[in-house]
C-alpha cells in the first residue's frame, strides 16, 4: 500500500520533542482568506476599490474571532462615518464563494480543507492548495436556522468547549479530565486560541491530551534511551505528574476522529488505537474500513481513488491513528480527515 520503506524506528510514537514540534506545526498552520463584503450590501459612500480584506488566519481559530479585525478594517478603510457607526456585527454571516454557508463553529482550517476537497470533485474548477479561500461577508439577515447557533464569539466558545468534552468522552469514556479543569484553566484554552498563544493553550491542553510516550504492550519496544526522554518540554507540559502509560496515546479507548467527504456527509465512528490483531490502527486501515470504494483493501491491489488531508497535509496511509490524535488534532481535540478525489490521470510524483 505504501511506497515508503518500512519503518526502522521503534515506533511511530515519537520522542516528546517531536511531539511538541508537530503540535507546534499544527498550531502555527495558517490559511489564506479573501473576505469580500457582498457588493449588494455595501453601504452608500463605501470605498469600493478596497472592500476585500486579506488575512492569513490560524487553522485552529474560528470565524467569529476574526470579526473584530474585519470590523476595524471596514471602519477605517471602507465605510464612511455613518456606515461605520451603524454597523451591526451581530448580524454578520459568511458564505463561501460558491454560496455555501460557512459554519461559525468549525475551525478555520477545517473550513479551508473542506473547501479544497469539495473542489476536487469539480474537474473544471482550478482548485489550488495555495489560492486564498474566497469568502463573502454578509452584513445583515443571518439565516439563523442554518447557521445553527448565534453568530457570537461566546456561542462559538461554548461549541468549542462542547467539542473538547465530546473528545474527552471518546478518549477516556468520561469527561473527568475536562471537568477537572478549573474555570480559569478552561477559559485559558479559549484565550490561547483567541490570542493564538501556543504556550497558553498547551499549558492546559497537555492535561487532557494523550502523551506519545512509547508504550510497552502494543508498539515494538522503545529505544533504550527513551526513558531519559520522558520529560516533556516545559512548553508542552508544565509539571504533570500523571503516569505516562495511563495517559498514553495508545491507551485511550478511542481517538476522536471525523471523516469529511466532498459536499458531505461527515462520518464519525469509534476509532480504537489498536486493532483486534494487536497492530496499531492506521489511517489507511480506518479509511478502508469506512470507505472501501475509495480506499480499497491494499491486498486487492486496486488503486486508491482518493486522498486524505489532515491539517492541510496529505497524510500517508500508514500514519497511526493514535499518533494523529496526540499530535495532529485540532485545538478542539478532533482529528479532521478531509477526503478529496484524485484527478483523472493526475500524477503525483
Amino acid at each position: 500500500m505504501s511506497s515508503y520503506a518500512p519503518r526502522h524506528s521503534p515506533s511511530a510514537f515519537s520522542t516528546p520533542a517531536s511531539t511538541t514540534l508537530f503540535r507546534r506545526l499544527t498550531w502555527e498552520g495558517t490559511v489564506p482568506l479573501e473576505i469580500r463584503v457582498d457588493p449588494n450590501e455595501l453601504p452608500a459612500n463605501s470605498d469600493r476599490g478596497l472592500e476585500c480584506y486579506y488575512i492569513q488566519a490560524p487553522r485552529v481559530s474560528y470565524l467569529p474571532l476574526l470579526v473584530p479585525e474585519i470590523k476595524r478594517f471596514l471602519q477605517d478603510v471602507v465605510f464612511d462615518e455613518t456606515a461605520a457607526r451603524t454597523m451591526k456585527e451581530e448580524e454578520w454571516w459568511f458564505e463561501s464563494d460558491g454560496g455555501g454557508l460557512l459554519k461559525w463553529h468549525w475551525p478555520i482550517g477545517l473550513i479551508y480543507d473542506n473547501h479544497a476537497i469539495s473542489q476536487s470533485v469539480r474537474p473544471t474548477t482550478a482548485a489550488s492548495f495555495f489560492a486564498p479561500l474566497r469568502i463573502v461577508l454578509h452584513l445583515a439577515s443571518p439565516p439563523t436556522e442554518k447557521l445553527l447557533m448565534s453568530p457570537s464569539a461566546e456561542a462559538c466558545k461554548q461549541a468549542f468547549m462542547g467539542q473538547l468534552k465530546e473528545a474527552d468522552f471518546i478518549r477516556w469514556g468520561n469527561t473527568k479530565r475536562m471537568t477537572g479543569l478549573r474555570k480559569a484553566e478552561q477559559d485559558g484554552l479559549w484565550e490561547g486560541i483567541k490570542e493564538h498563544n501556543f504556550d497558553e493553550y498547551w499549558r492546559v491542553a497537555s492535561k487532557i491530551t494523550p502523551t506519545t510516550t512509547p508504550t510497552r504492550s502494543h508498539s515494538p519496544p522503545p529505544p533504550p534511551t527513551s526513558t531519559s526522554l520522558h520529560t516533556r518540554p516545559p512548553s508542552a507540559d508544565p509539571g504533570s505528574t500523571a503516569a505516562p502509560d495511563r495517559d498514553g496515546a495508545s491507551n485511550v479507548r478511542n481517538i476522536p476522529a471525523r471523516i469529511y467527504l466532498p459536499d458531505g456527509p461527515v462520518l464519525q465512528d469509534l476509532v480504537p488505537p489498536v486493532l483486534e490483531d494487536g497492530s496499531m490502527h492506521t489511517l489507511g486501515a480506518f479509511l478502508t474500513a469506512h470507505l472501501p470504494l475509495l480506499f480499497p483493501d491494499p491486498h486487492s491491489k486496486k488503486p486508491n481513488l482518493a486522498y486524505a488531508l489532515i491539517q492541510g497535509v496529505p497524510a500517508p496511509p500508514d500514519t497511526e491513528m493514535a499518533w494523529l490524535g496526540a499530535c495532529m488534532a485540532g485545538a478542539d481535540g478532533w482529528v479532521n480527515i478531509c477526503v478529496g478525489l484524485l484527478r483523472e490521470g493526475a500524477r503525483y510524483p
Partner: peptide
C-alpha cells in the same frame, strides 16, 4: 498549476478512463 503540490506516492491513482467516474459513484 492545479494541485501543484505533490501528494505522497502512496495516494497516487493510476491513469485510466473510468477512475474519476468510479470515484464519483463511490461518493
Amino acid at each position: 498549476e492545479p494541485n501543484a503540490r505533490t501528494l505522497p506516492s502512496a495516494w497516487t491513482s493510476l491513469d485510466g478512463g473510468n477512475v474519476m467516474h468510479e470515484a464519483h459513484e463511490a461518493l
